[in-house]
């Protein structure tokens, strides 16, 4: 045993590259085999004719991508896109003040932060169910509104765009708060003091110092909400019903009821492409300093 160890050490010592790859290899292999390769296969599938009982037949076709120009699917694409943007915007409006409050939360900071991290990690399914429980016709929201006399009869909240939007925002809000908090937290307080001494009132101070310096967090937060919203499936599935389909539901549908794997793959690939576009956009803006134009 000792001898083996000696020989291993002796071999590894002058070969740092080999050592690095020895550590990397198992995990990398896993990711290649079970993440990258499947994505490639999926991409290939998306360009093959549909098989009769699921699966594909040999051949090459762009038919599945062409189908997206059908108004039915264009509609789904548009809805997915618009809703993801809207969800991102709402999360930003709701999340920024919260992130600000946490960053200035003093002794409460850790607790406030934990209360945001918690939903970040708790079961999305359970959280979506909580929304159902509140919003259904005989749910608590209707119940309370009836009692308070706001409405006279139960109104339909579930299976409406409102329910889906509420579910999306509810689901992804923590993704917005955390990065904004992180950038506000990093903000050097003496910069704010400097702005004050230079004559900036609180509103101006926020506009010219706090906001621009928290932009990296805002951009990251928008990305982190937009991406999962784009690929979301459970929310529209459980809160939206058949009329509020998003592209994630379309994908799921093709792999279950519709049994059109290549079309589902194409839809899935479009989701992936949109996500990568969003990431590239993010990387573009990320490093651009949010400064002000030079004086003339």
């Amino acid at each position: 045993m000792a001898a083996v160890r000696e020989r291993l050490l002796a071999w590894l010592h002058p070969r740092p590259q080999a050592r690095a790859w020895a550590l990397l290899a198992p995990g990398t292999l896993w990711l290649l085999l079970f993440f990258l390769v499947p994505l490639i296969i999926m991409f290939v599938y998306s360009m093959m004719p549909r098989g009769i009982y699921g699966g594909v037949d040999p051949g090459f076709t762009l038919e599945h991508y062409r189908r997206f120009f059908d108004p039915l699917y264009l509609d789904i694409l548009r809805r997915t896109f618009v809703w993801s943007i809207a969800c991102t915007a709402i999360c930003l409006v709701l999340g920024y003040p919260v992130a600000y409050a946490i960053a200035r939360g003093g002794q409460w900071k850790n607790l406030l932060l934990f209360l945001v991290v918690l939903p970040f990690w708790t079961s999305f399914l359970v959280r979506t169910f909580a929304m159902i429980f509140l919003l259904r016709d005989s749910g608590l929201v209707n119940n309370w509104m009836l009692r308070l006399g706001v409405i006279e009869h139960s109104i339909t909240l579930l299976y409406t765009p409102f329910a889906v939007m509420a579910g999306l925002v509810y689901g992804f809000l923590p993704f917005m708060i955390l990065p904004i908090y992180a950038s506000l937290e990093k903000l050097d307080l003496s910069l704010l003091e400097a702005a004050e001494v230079l004559g900036a009132r609180p509103v101006e101070r926020f506009r010219r110092v706090t906001l621009p310096l928290s932009m990296p967090g805002v951009v990251a937060g928008c990305l982190l909400v937009f991406i999962p919203a784009l690929g979301s499936f459970l929310t529209a599935d459980l809160l939206g019903g058949a009329k509020q389909m998003m592209i994630g539901n379309l994908v799921q549908n093709q792999f279950s009821a519709a049994r059109n794997w290549p079309f589902g793959s194409a839809a899935s690939f479009i989701v992936m492409a949109l996500v990568l576009l969003a990431v590239m956009f993010y990387l573009r803006v990320k490093d651009r300093a949010p400064g002000e134009a030079p004086l003339r």
């Binding site: 050097d188 003496s190 910069l191 400097a194 004050e196 001494v197 230079l198 310096l213 400064g291 030079p294």
Partner: peptide, 20 residues
């Protein structure tokens, strides 16, 4: 502070990193 007519130089300089 913004109502006082004073100026200040900070220990960390506190230059706004996003401004030229």
């Amino acid at each position: 502070p913004y109502e006082r007519k004073i100026a200040m130089v900070f220990q960390s300089y506190a230059l706004f990193p996003h401004l030229s």
